[in-house]
Nucleic acid binder design. Sequence first.
DNA 1: AAATAAAATTGACAGTGTCAATATAGAGAC
DNA 2: GTCTCTATATTGACACTGTCAATTTTATTT
Lengths: 201, 201
Amino acid sequence: MLTMTKKTTSTPHHHGNLREALINAGLELLETGGAQALTLRKCAALAGVSHAAPANHFNGLVSLKVAIMARGHLLFAETMRQASSQAESCPRTQLIAICEGYIRFARTHKTLFNLMFQFDCIDLEGVDDASKNEKRKAGEESYGILKKACLPFEHNGGNSLNTETMVWSLVHGYAMLFANEGASKRAIPSFSEILPNLPLK
Amino acid sequence: MLTMTKKTTSTPHHHGNLREALINAGLELLETGGAQALTLRKCAALAGVSHAAPANHFNGLVSLKVAIMARGHLLFAETMRQASSQAESCPRTQLIAICEGYIRFARTHKTLFNLMFQFDCIDLEGVDDASKNEKRKAGEESYGILKKACLPFEHNGGNSLNTETMVWSLVHGYAMLFANEGASKRAIPSFSEILPNLPLK
DNA sequence: AAATAAAATTGACAGTGTCAATATAGAGAC
DNA sequence: GTCTCTATATTGACACTGTCAATTTTATTT
């Protein structure tokens, strides 16, 4: 008898889907224990496997981190999409809402946000292609939301790249510098107060 | 006989000035080997002492890192001061020069810059008071340069805090996002192109 | 010169990432 | 159904890390 339509994407061998489980474990450790709690061995333990099991799915800790960064960008994009959908359609209102989503994500997921936008970029030598591709794709998705919201505007000579770059720099710097509880000593202006008046196209 | 005028700030015991040497070693390791090369044991080895010697000067690795952040802010301030002194006195020219110094520092000292502006703030519980104070003071010094350059301008209702916050966010985000060689694929606008036109007071 | 405090050393311990060797489960071929 | 073979997971080891306790060395003070 032909066992037709047998699952081609069958759950692998022992665990089921360890790669996914390790990413989720990493996210959880990051949220609860901070950056230094993100450990290959802790992820493995949280997923219920031995300490060396992750090696079958990630070429070392860095590859897992890159996969987590990718996952973070998906959550990031979702936060901005949600903010956009709850705001009115006026271009400036939309842009502000998305930026506030940006900032809220940074505030809510400090450690993940920091990992995602690490400045001294992770050396991608030796990182899994899967993780790298996921990160690139998810990064483009999240950036695309901001980019789209900049399209109605014009800034410095009609080059839309100028607007994108200005807005992205502004919101990213604001999120980095002020989306921390520690900075609450000073009365920081809201983002809408520092966003320059952008003329519509 | 009175041994008057004996050095009150005498060089301590064995090493001479191990605290300073450890900070310098940390800076060097950071520049040459990246973030993960900054290790208590490597610093100790580079300073020529045993692996546990740093404990006499820093309450753990985090305290050393905070001291290194402080030192970084001094270099940061120096870079911006130099940029300022080499530019003409026109307010906007001054501001742009200082911001370009900001960006140049980020580009030149990627890992140090990242450490200095780590988003998920280092837990300062248990950090040496000396390191904490150094960092606060040096941070105020570097920020003061930018702040001063914002004074001639007015933005959104005469509140100078708005101008500072806008400019700082903008330059910091720009430095974070684009002061990396990896981002050179796209043609990024220069900073002066994205700095909005700020009316003078 | 003796006593005291500061600084550095040594040794140990629990974690960490990573590698090699081994065991095991599932997939496909017959 | 059985047999291979590959993917996956385990175990054990290694070097390296931060940190602690005990000890020794050095400098200052009395």
